[in-house]
Each structure stands twice: as C-alpha cells, then as structure tokens.
Design a protein around this nucleic acid. Structure first.
Lengths: 256, 256
DNA sequence: TATAATGTTCTATATTATAGCACGATAATG
DNA sequence: CATTATCGTGCTATAATATAGAACATTATA
C-alpha cells in the first residue's frame, strides 16, 4: 500500500506528506488528513500537533481544521534568496524598459519553477504565478536553459520527457526541440511564440552559476501582438546583458 | 541542553530545527548542522537525507553542502493564498492611485509578518521584505490590528510586550500605546509617523476574517515628506473602503 | 433527541530512530 | 608534497520512540 519504501526517517516523511496535502486544500481536519496519507488518525494527530508547535501548520480554532502555517511561509521566502536579491533590480529595470511582465525561474528537473516576477503595470499584461511549475520544452526560459546544458544531461532530460500539445505551436517531439535549441544557441536567447498559450509570447536568457550550469533564467512575457519579432530582438539584447551580469555576480566565469 | 521538552514527535521536531538552521545561512554541511541542533552527525545525516528526498532541502553536488529546497518554496507560496489572491488587485490599485509601496501583513502573535507587497515605481520608495517580521507596536499595520482586538486579547499582548526604541517617536510604554490605539479607533485607520524608522511614514487599516478577528492589515508606506497629514487622510479613505471589501469577501459581516 | 463523526488523551508493544564505529574522500596543514 | 584532520556516508545493535488501538469528549448530522 505504501508506495515509496526505503524512506529514511519514517515520521519525518509522513510529516512532509501531511504538509503536501495542503497543496490543493486550504483547510483540512485530522481524520481527513489521516485518510489522505493512510495513517491512523491518532498517528496523524501526533504529527500534526508537532507541525503545529513550530507553526508549520496552524489550527483554525473556530473550525478545528488546520492550514499551512506562517513559519513555512517565512522559510519559503529564504529559498534561493541570494539569486532573488541579485536579480530583482534587473527584473525591475526590464519592466521599466519594456513595460511587459518579467519572470525569474529556476530549473527543477524537467520543469521550471517561477521564483519571482515583476508585473507590467499595463492593463493588458501577462500575470504569472510565483511558485508555479511548467515543463521545460514549452517555455522560453526552459529552452534557454536546455540549450546551454551539456549534451549528456540534455539527452537525459529529453528521454524522460512526455509532451502535452498546449497549442498548435507546441513542440512535441525530440527532433523539433533539438532544432529549436540549435536556433537558441545561434541567437543567444530563446523565444516562445504561442507554444504554451495562444496570444502569449516570451523571450528568455539563461543564468549560470559558478559551476557554469544554466540553473535559472529570466524571461519577458507579453501578448503576441506587442511582442513582435523586432521587439523580441530588442528585448533580447538587454536580457543577455543582464543575465550575464547576474551570472557574474554569482561567480560564473565565461569560458571559451 | 535540549531547551524544549515534551515535544511530540522527536524526529519531526528535529527535522524542523534543521530547516530553521537555514534561516540565516544559505548553505550548510552535515557536521555543521549536527552541531547547530546538537545531534550526532549520523543522526543529522539521516534527517537531512530524508528532507532532501522531498526537496525540502537540496544538495549542492559541487560543495557537498545543503540549502533550502524548491518544494519548501512551492509550499510556502500556498500559505494564505486565499487572502493573497483576494487582496492583490486592491494592493495594485492602491499603488496606482498613490504611487507609494503597499503591503499586506498577517498578525503572528505580537508581530506582523509581511505577506505580500506591491512596490511603487518611483525611484525614492519604501522597499519592504516579504517574509519579514516586525513588532505590532511600532507599525501602522500592527496598531490597526491591535486597535480592533477584544480588550482581553489586547491586554494579553500588551503584558507580553518588550519595547525597542527604534526612533524618538517609537511608542515604548503601554499607556502611550493605549492612547494611540484610541485615536486609531476614532479615526478608523492607523498611522505611523517615523515610529519605526526616521523618514518613513505609513497609513494602515485592518482586515477582518469571518470570525470578526482583525487578523491582517494593509498599509501604504512612503517617505515622510510625501506622506503629509492631508495625504495620509486621503489614502485612508481608500484603504478603509478596500479593507472592508476584502473582509467582506472573506465572509466578515460587520456587526453593530 | 439520537446517532454518527471528529478531535484528543493515554498506554503497551513493536517498530524505528539513534549514536557509535568504520571507511573513503576531500580539504587543511606542516 | 606528505601528513593529518575533517567531512560525508553506510552499517548495526540497542535503547528509545513512534505507533495504533481503545476510550472519551465534543461537535455535527439525521
């Protein structure tokens, strides 16, 4: 019944499973949680109480139910704070220059996770979700990262990929991705013209850490009718310059 | 040596202590962590590996050290997402109207925690830290919350308070706080004129949940020379209207 | 009002976490 | 460059801990 065996510390794992229950639920009760993770309610209660003591969970005294706690939020804000602090001024500068929403993402396996954004103040603008997760192959940020990965790692990623055809433009086989990545390399930046969503276009460039790994990326996203080819090209030059500056601050030394 | 006994699930508690080690450290090694939490390194290793498996921690394969993981970040973004989603449009509207930084905070005991912000785009602006924690007594948001708490709860808070005199204007005794709260009640909004930091002034109003508890607040922060008395009053009327709308969406029904 | 479901406490037992030791690898030191 | 210290990691026996069951109190439901 238990799906993942050979877990190290059982109770810690169970506690984490409990936290993950709240990914799609704002409030849950003890019995409810117990059922979700397959534990006796008294066992669940012990774990929940422990999490509550450190404010990883909070109890709504009126409903008797639990929700994610503030300490979890506070810790979450510390994740990759270095990268975020370095990048934010650049994100703001980009928004100021182009009046389109700017995103900072981090690679996580075959996906990117949206770490930070600065939205344009225009009424028609792209609004991304910080904390959200999207596949590498259908985003400009993802392609910017993939194009700069060592061949072996890229192969690993591609072999484990499953495709969803979000739009008519979505790349949905290895060959067309490789082709697209080739273009990314020669251009020095990545584009996504309605590959994820109709009407949405992006430009992106990768950020390298001091092990020369393209672990993050920045993109500018806007409605396609404003993100013309010329405009994307214009944006890309600033994007490349800024991502290089950020990479430099992270200790990256450009090799030949 | 162990400070808090009668903890429920020991290993879960220890795992949380380990996560908290990273509050002021971007990267830590196994032995280092073991020392910080007072555990044998092999014990610490087991806990750390478990946290790593669910990406609560991540290992930097090059340095061998650990850092906070992306899953923690993702979970953190889910905390109080309801309140945040409801509030953000109002925050943005306020920035647009007054061109000063707007904050959404949550009460946490004797403190407020900054949950969300929308910064002004002016070059001189207030820049707050999401995830940051400040005492109730020296912030407009804190006073907005305190002024609307039941007497008994307020007394509890005040009795447990220790004061730091951040500026000459900082309220640093119970009487002056009570006096200030009286004014907040009659005005319907709270102010902070350089009580936390010289040159910084704020206006704030509370948000009520459907148990009529002032659990959150919104503030507008700017440099004092722009935040004149008249301007603060002007801001306050929008602030009051918006916080009431948000409270309503949360199920709060204004009683007489 | 009766019945069901839920949150919570307590306890004995068996499972689990623990720390000690050992090993290889890496980094610091002389 | 050699030597020594430090670090991360795996294994194992034992002691300590988490666990689920039963029971009760409280709240929700029929």
């Amino acid at each position: 019944m238990a799906s993942s065996e050979n877990v190290k510390i059982q109770s810690v794992n169970r506690a984490i499973q409990i936290l993950l229950c709240f990914e799609n639920n704002e409030e849950l009760g003890v019995t409810e949680i117990g059922k979700m993770v397959g534990l006796h309610k008294s066992t669940a209660f012990g774990l929940i109480s422990t999490l509550e003591m450190s404010k990883m969970l909070e109890k709504n005294e009126n409903s008797g139910k639990y929700r994610l706690g503030l300490e979890l939020f506070r810790l979450g804000t510390k994740v990759n704070s270095n990268l975020r602090h370095i990048s934010i001024p650049y994100l703001e500068q980009l928004v100021k220059m182009y009046q389109e929403t700017v995103n900072l993402v981090l690679r996580d396996g075959n996906s990117v996770i949206y770490l930070e954004k600065v939205e344009s103040s225009r009424s028609m603008r792209i609004s991304t979700t910080v904390g959200g997760k999207l596949p590498l192959y259908c985003t400009a940020v993802g392609k910017a990262i993939m194009a700069n990965l060592p061949q072996s790692e890229l192969n690993n990623i591609l072999s484990g990929m499953t495709f969803t055809k979000y739009t008519n433009n979505t790349l949905h086989d290895t060959n067309s991705i490789l082709e697209s990545l080739e273009k990314v390399r020669s251009n020095g930046y990545a584009e996504d013209v309605e590959e994820l969503e109709t009407g949405l276009s992006c430009v992106a460039a990768p950020i390298f850490n001091h092990f020369s790994s393209p672990f993050a990326a920045i993109s500018v996203s806007g409605p396609t009718f404003r993100m013309t080819e010329d405009f994307r090209k214009e944006i890309s030059s600033a994007l490349i310059q800024y991502t290089q500056e950020i990479s430099g601050k992270l200790g990256y030394i450009k090799s030949l």
